[in-house]
Design a binder for these strands. Structure first.
Length: 429
DNA sequence: GATCCACAGGAAATTAAGGGTC
DNA sequence: GACCCTTAATTTCCTGTGGATC
């Protein structure tokens, strides 16, 4: 039996690992941002005209996740605000939106309005979009006495999701011609390097006046970033000498993601602390890496809608019972139709939608769906689970409606015939 | 080289839901 | 309560794909 009192007593006695763990969190902005001098200088040069009360050019910032885009913008923002205060100029207004959460034209406009005037909020739905736009102009002129920077983080998601967002971005980029007093500057941030190609040329010419690319960090740069933070985050002697190079090397393998490197280091520290180890060793880093991956998968599976869980369960059932046969989209759909009848309150989806959900599962990394052509036997996805069956079983356990179906043996698996649109076909081997 | 299969996936249409105004 | 608006989810329709087979 676990001796909880003894554990707590030992926990207090063992050496502290962390001095200040928040320093390792991604939202922490350090006083110095290593290897981002060029980008800081470029943004500073563009926004400096704010100090002469002129509107800076709109900016597009590109770079993969964890390359310091948001941190650099926040860094410049802090310094520009201080400079404005020192020069007795009105401080610019900064409105930051993450387009993953605020992902429709209406919501973007409404959110900006509500940031400017939280006491008279625009409703979350119901108004015609041009009315919201007029309201935005009114609020900008009322509440902004200088420059208003609108930061659209992950702007590519907004554009990908909505055709109408092109119009809104175009209108936002040209909003200054309708403003009497305020001036608006747009900073678009994207993780997708070729995102520009998907933009309407009108939007691109008005919005992308300046472009800044954030390259990925290499292992040496990541090591220096980790060194800088670790000095303040950990107790002296808590880190073995090889830990930071190891974390940097593991993160560098994944397109130089500093956020991932910091996460890995923090998680390794937390594991060492929980195991009451006096220091962090490389084993804790590997455990942490494994834990981060598992946590991501678990969180992803648990947050899936019921339909996606049912499709995942169909792939699970096929893989468990397939006896060496390949799993293709048609099989998964047949199995899904069998399961759907047994899950209360679950509507039947079309094969088109099921195919789309399989694609989403593939993008998330939980399954591997590779398109292959079998000549005259057609072209389809060959699907495999990317995680062990027992792990998926655990991740889906929180969905009560699926609990009785983990041992389900699909009827379609017993025959070599599959049905589609009323026609029978011989299955692939 | 033409044909065929089993989808893949883009685009448009449809439906339902949530909220507003009058 | 009727009607309008936006959005999200899904369906329907359609064209494209790539390699085995004819």
């Amino acid at each position: 039996m676990f001796d909880i009192d003894n554990y707590f007593e030992n926990f207090v006695k063992t050496n502290k690992i962390f001095e200040e763990r928040n320093i390792l969190r991604p939202e922490f902005v350090p006083k110095i941002l290593p290897h981002r001098d060029n980008q800081i200088r470029k943004i500073a040069e563009i926004v400096a005209c704010t100090l002469k009360n002129s509107k800076p050019s709109n900016i597009f910032i590109f770079g993969k996740t964890g390359t310091g885009k948001t941190a650099v913008v926040n860094y410049v923002k802090g310094h520009l605000n201080i400079q404005c205060r020192n020069s007795e100029l009105p401080e610019p207004k900064w409105i930051s939106l993450n387009c993953q959460q605020v992902n429709s034209s209406y919501r973007v406009l409404a959110r900006i309005c509500n940031e400017l005037d939280p006491y008279n909020p625009v409703p979350i739905a119901g108004w015609p979009i041009d009315v919201v736009f007029d309201k935005l102009i009114e609020k900008l002129d009322t509440y902004v006495h200088g420059i208003c920077f609108i930061i659209l983080d992950e702007i590519d998601i907004l554009v990908k999701k909505m055709k109408k967002s092109h119009d809104i971005l175009y209108n936002l980029a040209r909003i200054n011609s309708r403003l009497k007093q305020a001036k608006v500057n747009i900073i678009g941030i994207s993780n997708v390097l070729n995102f520009k190609n998907s933009l309407d040329p009108r939007v691109l010419s008005s919005l992308g006046e300046e472009e800044i690319v954030f390259p990925a960090y290499n292992a040496q740069e990541l090591k220096e970033i980790l060194d800088q933070r670790a000095n303040f985050a950990f107790q002296r002697g808590a880190l073995a000498h090889d830990i930071i190079p190891l974390c940097a090397a593991l993160a560098a393998k994944e397109h130089g993601d500093a956020r991932k490197a910091l996460d890995l280091l923090r998680k390794a520290g937390e594991l060492a602390e929980r195991r009451q180890s006096p220091s962090i060793t490389s084993d804790f880093v590997y455990f942490a890496q494994n834990d981060i991956e598992k946590d991501k998968m678990k969180e992803y599976c648990e947050s899936l809608p019921l339909q996606s869980k049912a499709i995942l369960l169909s792939i699970y059932a096929m893989q468990k019972n397939r006896a060496g046969n390949a799993i293709i989209t048609g099989d998964v759909y047949s199995c899904y139709l069998e399961l759907q009848k047994q899950i209360p309150g679950l509507n039947k989806l079309s094969q088109r939608r099921v195919s789309e959900i399989i694609r989403e599962l593939d993008l998330s990394g939980i399954v591997n769906a590779q398109i292959k052509s079998n000549g005259r036997y057609g072209r389809t996805k060959f699907i495999n689970l990317n995680i062990p069956l027992e792990d998926l079983n655990k991740y889906l356990l929180n969905e009560n409606r699926l609990n009785d179906l983990f041992d389900y043996r699909p009827k379609c698996i017993g025959s070599n015939i599959t049905c589609f649109k009323g026609q029978k076909y011989v299955k692939l081997g």
